[in-house]
Computed example of a mutant assay.
Amino acid sequence: MSSYPPSGPPPTTTLRQRLADLRGPAVPPRPLDARAIAALAANPGCRRRALLDGAGVDKNALASALGSPAAFGQSQFAIVRGNSFEAKVKGDGGAELLRLVHEHLGTGAAEPPGPGALVPDLTAAGPEGRAARTALALREATAAGAWTLLDHPMLALEVAGTPAYLEPDAVVVHPDGRWTVVEIKSFPLLDGAADPAKVGAAARQAAVYVLALEKTAAKVPDAEVGHTVLLVCPKDFSNQPAAAPVDIRRERAVTRRQLRRLTGVEELAAALPEGLGFDPARPAEELAEAVAAVPAAYAPECLAACELAFHCRERARAADEVSALGRSVRGELGALTTVEQALAAAAGAGSPEDPTAAALQRAARLRAEALEASACRC
C-alpha cells in the first residue's frame, strides 16, 4: 500500500461480497478502531490479522470457535468507570476539558476557553456521514478562530486498502488553528505520572487519530495537527481530572511507516482458496484450515493485543517455530527458523563459518562450563 488518504473509494462490489463471504452471510462486519489499528501496525508482517481485520471478522468469536478464546479486555466495571469519568470531564459544555487543554497546550492563546466555547453537533447518518460532518466542523471551527470542542468526532483512515472509521474521545480546535487530540483514560495520574506501559498504549492509539486528522488538515487553510496530545486521567486516587501532554511524534512516524508496509486486503483475500471462510458457525476443523491458509507472524507480544494470539501460539509451538520465543530471538537466529535447527547448530551441526551457528556453539560451551563450575562448587 503506497498511501492512505483519509477517505478513499469504498471497496468494489466484488471485493465487498468476497469479504462478506469470508465473514459469513449473517455476520455483520466488525469495525476497526484505533486500538486495533495500532496493534496491527505494530506487527505489519502478520497477513492473518491484516486480512481478518480488513474483512471485519470478529476475531474474539473466531478464537472461541477454534477453542482458544481470548483472555484479555476491559471488565464491565472498568468500562462503566471510564464512561463515568469521561462524562465528568466533558460536563458543563466541556469547560473543564478545555481548561486543561489551555493550561497544558494553550500557548499563544490570550484567553482561556470558558463555558461558551463552541461544541458543534456532529450527528449524521452512518460513519461516512459522521466523518463528512466532522471534516466540515473542523473547517468551520478553524475559520472561526475560536476554542471548539468536538465530542467523539468521526475520522477516516484507509488501512490495508479498506476504509476504517475512528472515534477519538475528543478533538480540540485552538484559536490559532491547531487541532489537538484528547485521550481520556480511567487509569490514574499519580504525582503527575502514569504507568509507562499504559501511557505508551495510549500514545500509539492517539498516533492513529493524528494520522487520520492530518489528511483532513491538509485541505483546510491555516490548520495544523498538534503532535502533542493531551492525556486526561483521574488525579491520584480521586475522581478529579488531571492532564499530561504526551509527545507522539515517534509513535506517529512508526505507525505511518508500518501502515505503508501492510499488504492490501484485496490481495490477501484473492490468495485464499475458494470455499474457505471465517464464519464462527462453521466446524472448528474448517475454521482451523481457513486460518492456517493465511500466514501469521506470531510473537509473544501478540498475547496482549490480538484475540487469536493463543491459537497462533499453539500452532507456532507445534511447528517448533523460534518466533514463539520472541522477535529478538527470531532476529538473532537468522535463517534458523525452528528450535530444532537452533539446538542442532548449538551442538555443532552448523557450519563454523556461519556466524549464527558459531555464536550458538560458543553460548553452548559457556553454558556447559558454567554448569560444570556450579557442580564443582556443590
Rank of each mutant, 00 (worst) to 15 (best):
R35F: 08
A36W: 02
I37S: 01
I37E: 01
I37K: 01
A38V: 01
A39M: 02
A39L: 02
A39K: 00
A39P: 05
A39S: 14
L40M: 09
L40N: 06
A41M: 03
A42P: 02
A42V: 01
N43G: 08
P44T: 09
P44I: 10
P44D: 12
G45S: 09
G45V: 11
G45Y: 04
R47T: 12
R47L: 11
R49C: 04
R49T: 08
R49D: 03
A50F: 01
A50H: 00
A50P: 00
L51M: 07
L52W: 02
D53Y: 14
D53V: 06
G54M: 03
A55Y: 07
A55F: 10
G56D: 06
G56Q: 06
V57E: 00
V57P: 00
D58F: 02
D58Q: 12
D58V: 07
K59D: 05
N60L: 10
N60M: 05
N60R: 13
N60V: 11
N60H: 09
A61S: 10
L62R: 03
A63I: 04
A63S: 09
S64T: 13
A65V: 02
G67A: 02
G67E: 03
G67N: 03
G67D: 01
S68F: 15
P69L: 01
P69N: 08
A71R: 15
A71D: 14
A71Y: 06
A71M: 12
A71Q: 13
A71P: 04
F72S: 13
G73T: 10
Q74L: 11
Q74R: 14
Q74S: 15
S75V: 14
S75D: 10
S75T: 15
S75H: 11
F77V: 14
F77A: 14
F77D: 11
A78N: 13
A78T: 14
I79K: 06
I79H: 01
I79L: 12
V80P: 00
R81C: 05
G82R: 04
G82C: 05
N83P: 00
S84P: 00
S84Y: 08
F85H: 04
F85N: 02
F85T: 04
A87L: 13
K88V: 11
K88Y: 06
V89H: 09
K90Y: 03
G91N: 12
G91V: 07
D92K: 12
G93Q: 06
G93A: 08
A95N: 07
A95Y: 02
A95V: 15
